[in-house]
Every structure is written in structure tokens, then in C-alpha cells.
Amino acid sequence: MREGGLMADSANEERLVHELQRELERELDRPLDDAELQRIKELVRAQLEAELRAKQRRSEREKEQEEYFVRFSLNVCLQHLVLAIGVILLTITGLPIKFHDSAWAEFIFRHIWSLEINRIIHRVGASLLMFVTVWHIGWLMTREGRRELRELLPRVKDLWDFIANVKFMLGLSSERPKFGRYSYSEKFEYWALVWGTAVMVPSGLMLWFHRIALAYLPKYIFDVALQAHSGEALLAILALITWHMYHAHLNPEVFPMNMTIFTGKISKKRMIEEHPLEYEQIMRERAEAERP
């Protein structure tokens, strides 16, 4: 196809040169000399080559978008979406309570929304987080969930991958470690989220339903819960705006935003680069499936 295109182009080139030559001769009313003819030929060739390159780039991009793998199911994408909305609501209403002394918190509470509204929004966010937690636990029971959980379990390989990756980044080794379906950084973030939810949800529920909890729990448990809620919240937010922001947004590979978690799709190119072991496995499985 490409060969044909090139041949067609060389024919095209001669035709274009002839046309230009005829036109110029008619206008100047004299035959063109060799140098002038040569110049026209060069210009036409450069123009055609540029057009060809642009066309190739376009087709490559199209191909890249065309050849994709489904990385996340719709279920997973929706879980992430609900979680993200919940966490954003919790963050924007939790931070001004934690930093109630600051001028910006005061500005928010006095001019944007009242503390009463803040409390309601925080509890809406908390409900979304708890809802998605229950949803996720239910999903982990399904075939898909069990398979994903197996992939997410930390392994010794993750530690070696981490060390190898650091070496690679420092230039001590020339080869990048090959990641499977989930790299160590993705696993780390998943388990950090599990840990964070395990701290935030019980402590938050205790504070939310303190009227009931007061009947059963001593005061110091509330104090500990409040402090843990506050401390873990800040840790989680800092992790989100460094680790998550970098891996999902600011990283040059995906900048400005990695859309995989919203569309569920990942391009073949990124699949090969970021999850080579998974790619190889999928290819093997496909080959086996195609074999009679």
C-alpha cells in the first residue's frame, strides 16, 4: 500500500513539475533553463514529502487509537468516578475544619458556605465513600473482582521491580523492569486507599454518630478517633496531590490526564510500555484461543 503510494507520488511529481514549467514558460514567454527547472523539481519534491509525512503521522495516531485494550470494566470506571467525587467533597469540606484557624478557612465559612452546610456536604461525601466501599467489597466477590484482587496482591517481585526501576532512573541499569497488570506504584496506591478507608470510615462514623457511640465508648476513644481522622486525612490528601497527581496527570507519558480510568481503554503503545507482561500474556492467550 505504502509502496504504491510512493510510486503514485513519483508520477504525481513529474506531472506537477510539467504543469508548473508550462505555466511559467507561458507567462515569461521563453523556455526555462536547466537551473530553474531543477529548482522547481526540488520545491515540488519537498512539498510532497512534507505532505506524505503528515499523512503518515495521522495514520499512526489513528492506528494507536484504533488498537486499544480494555483495561478496566465499566464497573471499575464507575467505582472510581464515585470514589473521586466523594473524596473531592470530603477534601474541600474537611480541610477548612482541620485548618479552621487559617484565613482561607475563615473566608470559606463566612462567605462561601456555612459550617452547617459544610457538615452536610462532608457527610454526603462520606456516604459516597462508604457506598463505594461496600460496592467494591461486593465486586471483589465476583469473578472479575477476584481476578483483579489476585493481580493487586503485593508480591516480592514488586520490591525487585521498585529497586530495578530506581536503578533504571538513576542510569545504573539500561533496562526498565517489566510490569504486569499492576505496577508496584499502582498496587501501592490501591492498598494506601484501603488503609486510608479503614481508618477514615470507622473514625468518621464514630464522630458522625457520636450520640449513639457516646453510650458505649469512653471519651479518649473519641479523641483518638478525631486525631486519627485528622492525621490520616492530611496524609491521604498529600498522597493524592503528589503520588496520584503525578501518576495520573503530570507524568509526561500521560499529561495532561490519563483517561484510562474513565474510558476503560488503554492504547497498545502504552500497554506495551507500561504493562509488558500483561500484554505478552494477553497475546499468548489470544494465540492459544485462535489455535484450533
Partner: peptide
Amino acid sequence: YRWLTMVMTAGFIFYIVLDLYGRWR
């Protein structure tokens, strides 16, 4: 939580800088 937050955040930032450096190299 104070120490955990400081150590983790410093680690995250250090890792990100390292990763960017590696990519640039």
C-alpha cells in the same frame, strides 16, 4: 501521623523527582 505524613510526602516527592530525572535522561 506527623512523622508518617512527613516521611511519606518527602518520599513521594523524592520519587517523582527521580522519575522525571530518569525520563529526561
